[in-house]
Design a protein around this nucleic acid. Structure first.
Lengths: 119, 119
DNA sequence: GTTGCATTCAACCAAAAGGTTGACGAACGA
DNA sequence: TCGTTCGTCAACCTTTTGGTTGAATGCAAC
C-alpha cells in the first residue's frame, strides 16, 4: 500500500481523520487544538497526523514550541482525477448502451467493447 | 467504521480493488473474469468483492451459476460531495486570505474566522 | 444422478491499524 | 536554572485486514 493514491484513500477512511481535514480546511491548527474535540489521547491524534502527513494531505511547520498543521490542496486532485476518469468511462459506457439500444431498433449489430487494464 | 463514506474510502484504498472498479466501469464481469489478472486466489477476490459490495460500490445479480458484478455509480457521489465541500471551504478560505491581505493594504482589521465541526 | 464449473463459507495465519500508558525532548516564561 | 507547555517516541495490546487452503453449495449439462 505504498502508492500515494492508496495512502490518501486510506487516510480518509477514518472518520476522525476526515473530521480533522474538514476543520483544517477552515484554518490551520496546533496538535492540541486539533485533539480537543476527540475522546482519544494526544498521542493517538499525533499518530493520525502522521498518517495524514504521509499521505501528503497535510504539512507541518514549526512555530516556537508548537507545530501548526496545514492542509495541502494538491493531493485532493489525485483523488478527483481518479474518480473523474472512472466517471468518464461510466458515462461512455452508458453512451455505448444507448448506441446498442438504438442499433437494435435499427436492426444493426451492436458495437464490440474492448478491455483495458489501468492502475 | 460503520458509516458508508468510511467504507467507500477504505474500499478504494486497496490497489487491487481500485483496479477492479476501473475494469467494472468498462463492463460487468463475473468473479472468474475479474480474478484473472491478479496473482491471488479466487477466494481472495471474492473477499474483495464483499468489501466493495458492503461499501455499496457494486451489486451482484444471479445469472445461471455465475454472479455478474455491476458497478453502482451513485456511491461515488458521496465521495465527490465530501471532497467538493472541502474544496469550497478551502477556496473560501483563500478568498478570506485575499481579503485579509487587501484589508491590510487598506489599513482595516482582518475579519475573524469562526470554527465549525462537521462529520 | 453424477460430473463439472462458478462461487462461497470456514478456519486459520501474519501483518497492519488504532488505541493505550509512560518516558522523553525542545522551547518558552519566571 | 526550574518548572510548564507542546508534542513525539517507544513498547505494548487488541481488532481488522488481506491472504491462504480445504470443504461445501448451486446450477447445468450429460
Amino acid at each position: 500500500m505504498t502508492d500515494q493514491l492508496s495512502q490518501v484513500f486510506a487516510a480518509l477512511a477514518d472518520p476522525t481523520r476526515r473530521d480533522m481535514v474538514t476543520r483544517l480546511s477552515l484554518a490551520d491548527h496546533t496538535v492540541n487544538d486539533l485533539a480537543a474535540p476527540y475522546d482519544v489521547s494526544l498521542q493517538a491524534v499525533s499518530k493520525h497526523l502522521k498518517v495524514l502527513e504521509a499521505a501528503g494531505l497535510v504539512t507541518r511547520t514549526r512555530e516556537a514550541q508548537r507545530r501548526p498543521v496545514h492542509l495541502e490542496a494538491e493531493v485532493f486532485d489525485l483523488m478527483t482525477k481518479w474518480i473523474e476518469r472512472y466517471r468518464e468511462r461510466a458515462d461512455a459506457r452508458y453512451q455505448r448502451l444507448d448506441d446498442v439500444l438504438a442499433g437494435l431498433q435499427d436492426g444493426d449489430t451492436p458495437p464490440t467493447t474492448q478491455e483495458e487494464a489501468i492502475s
